[in-house]
């Protein structure tokens, strides 16, 4: 009874905190503030056909760096905990059932296609919807399918961490190059801007997105791989 009334009290507190926001809300029929600036000058300033990419990589590039760092931290913590329990029992005997023929055959056809889709998404991040995060997640799901269809296959942890580290360091390095050669951290004007709407345009955005895609893909693959390896013990 006491617990329920406490929950009710907390909910009422939330409602009281949020109500002024809802009350003062009024629908706007035009963009205001920074959104207006992005929509009007994004094309000239950044040169990316996909305005979302322009905001995510260039205007708000520092936030993206923070997101990638958080993902890296999550992946590292999972790796740390599962590694600690992995050394405890050194029994590498297989515990997986054999995958069905349908899954194995389908994965042979689908894994290369999903990988290609992921690479397409992050290479064209400045032209079409999607970008580094989306492409990386698609690549990681291709590797997850591969792990499901062939549980005996061993993924090298070294390759995953090398790809992740190199792409992470290069991302920060390109950001610092922006300070030296252009207007500021992660400015994309360090390369030629190219023709608006073509693959080689928008300066450094395609390169940054390739690096983010590789980094996110290897981090998520690393998480799935660590969890799969942890099934072995016991």
């Amino acid at each position: 009874m006491l617990r329920n009334s406490l929950i009710l009290l907390v909910l009422l507190g939330f409602a009281a905190a949020i109500f002024p926001l809802l009350h003062s809300y009024e629908a706007k029929d035009a963009l205001t503030g920074v959104a207006e600036h992005y929509a009007n000058y994004g094309k000239e300033e950044v040169g990316a056909a996909n305005l979302v990419s322009a905001v995510v990589v260039t205007y708000r590039g520092f936030d993206t760096l923070g997101e990638v760092t958080i993902l890296f931290l999550a992946s590292a913590v999972i790796g740390l905990f599962l590694k600690a329990s992995e050394t405890y029992t050194k029994d590498t005997r297989s515990v997986f059932f054999k995958s069905t023929e349908i899954l194995v055959t389908a994965s042979r056809l689908l894994v290369p296609m999903i990988l290609l889709l992921g690479v397409y998404i992050f290479i064209n991040g400045h032209l079409t919807p999607g970008g580094g995060f989306q492409g990386g997640a698609v690549i990681a799901s291709a590797f997850a399918l591969l792990l499901l269809s062939r549980p005996q296959k061993h993924f090298s942890h070294k390759v995953i961490s090398v790809v992740e580290s190199i792409s992470g360091i290069s991302f920060v390095f390109i950001g610092l190059l922006g300070v030296l050669l252009a207007g500021g951290f992660l400015d994309n004007h360090i390369l030629a801007m190219g023709k608006f709407g073509t693959l080689l345009s928008a300066g450094a955005i395609p390169i940054i997105y390739i690096l983010i895609g590789l980094k996110v893909g290897s981090e998520l693959t690393g998480i799935v791989r660590n969890l799969k390896e942890s099934q072995k013990e016991g």
């Binding site: 919807p129 970008g131 997640a137 799935v224």
Partner: peptide, 13 residues
Amino acid sequence: DVALTEASIGSGL
């Protein structure tokens, strides 16, 4: 782009 993320991370991974 949000849909891509949701489909691959939310329902897949």
